[in-house]
Simulated assay, not measured.
Amino acid sequence: MKTAASVLSEGAEQAVSDLPPDAESLGVIHSGPTAVGALTKRAWRDGDELARICPNATALLSNAADAVGGQKSGARTQLYSLANLSDLERKLISEVLGEGEVAGVVALPDGSLAQIREAVLAGIWRVRIGSEPAHEYVEIGAIPQIVRRAATDLTSPDLVIGSAPDGAMNVLPVLAEIRERAHAWRPGMRAHVINLTLLPMSAVDLAFLQQSVGNGPVQLIFRGYGSCRVQATGVRNVWSVQFFNSMDNIILDTLEVGGVPIVALAAGEDFEDSAERLHEIIKAYFP
């Protein structure tokens, strides 16, 4: 089931179809699969010189390493603005953090678009809001808060179920289940998963289901050997979660009723691992 976020502005359509957003659009340089690239070797000979030239970036990385080490999966996120960083410092931040497998776009109430990308270190995110001049920051947490806010503020609290079209088989009971579960769900409760792959749903059923739940403001994609696409629907607390194989064929199609799907969230052990790795990277840059 496709639930592309049609609430995004017309000018954002290209960004949506091109998920994950390219590194250039996020102000991120390509540093390959590891977080330590060649920038330092190319530009500086020692860590003292690097720290002297990039003091704000040095402080931000140190603070982020300490923050991610103490972060909890359900805790409030921590933000570090890039506004006071020079272009050189931004490049250093980008090289150290690298580009992970998770990226996405979020539509905002004012019509602007936010782009997010997780670093190679889980639980550390780069967020860019708007175009030039863009507001950019590093965020430490399970998922950027902007995702949760948009999924709550820009979705409907109710699911309106209309008359099923000719040829529909099982869509009305599924819609009734979604509405009941969405109304009953509260923070802290386990998510309820509806496996559309296993249900006897006709093409008419699926089309009416998509029409009924609508499109929401959040799209996330996770790249690996295959991919996972997580999209908010137009109904609050209802998400489309789809898994694809390496040929981009869908292998599991679900609707999840609850908070941000757990597949999109960094876990407690991720924070601990990322803190350890980031401290090691900082030592490599600033021996």
Rank of each mutant, 00 (worst) to 15 (best):
D253Q: 06
D18A: 03
D110W: 01
E10G: 15
G27S: 03
F286Q: 00
I194T: 15
L61E: 08
V260Q: 08
P287A: 06
M1L: 08
L88W: 01
V16C: 03
Q14A: 09
A43S: 11
L19G: 02
S81E: 15
G47V: 09
I53R: 11
A43W: 02
V230P: 05
E132L: 12
G226W: 05
A107W: 06
S73H: 13
H192G: 00
G226I: 02
D18E: 12
E269H: 08
A75Q: 09
P144D: 01
G37C: 11
L198H: 10
V102D: 11
E13Y: 14
P33Y: 11
Q231F: 07
N249L: 00
G74K: 07
G104Q: 07
L113Y: 03
A83S: 13
A232T: 08
E256Q: 08
G104W: 05
P157N: 02
R236S: 01
P33D: 15
R179Y: 03
A150D: 11
G70I: 06
A38T: 13
V174S: 00
I282F: 10
H30R: 14
A275T: 14
D166N: 09
V102K: 11
G104A: 01
A38Y: 15
V263H: 01
A12K: 00
E256M: 01
A4D: 14
T3P: 10
I143E: 08
N63W: 00
T40L: 05
Y285H: 08
A67L: 09
E276C: 06
R128A: 08
F243W: 15
L206E: 14
L209M: 14
D153S: 08
I251L: 06
R126E: 06
A57Q: 02
A264C: 08
I116G: 00
V105H: 03
G123P: 13
R128Y: 06
N63P: 00
A267D: 14
L108V: 10
C54M: 05
V263M: 05
G100N: 06
F244R: 00
P144A: 05
L278W: 08
I146T: 12
R90W: 01
L121T: 07
F208D: 15
A65Y: 12
V68Q: 12
V260T: 08
I262L: 10
V138P: 01
G37N: 10
T254D: 15
V218Y: 04
S227F: 04
L206R: 12
E118M: 15
S73W: 06
T77Y: 07
Q115G: 07
P173V: 14
S202M: 01
G74F: 14
V127F: 09
A15M: 01
T152R: 06
C228R: 05
V230N: 09
E139M: 08
R236H: 00
D46E: 07
G214V: 11
V106G: 03
S112P: 03
D273A: 15
A151H: 04
Y80Q: 08
E136Y: 05
V235L: 00
P20G: 01
L159C: 00
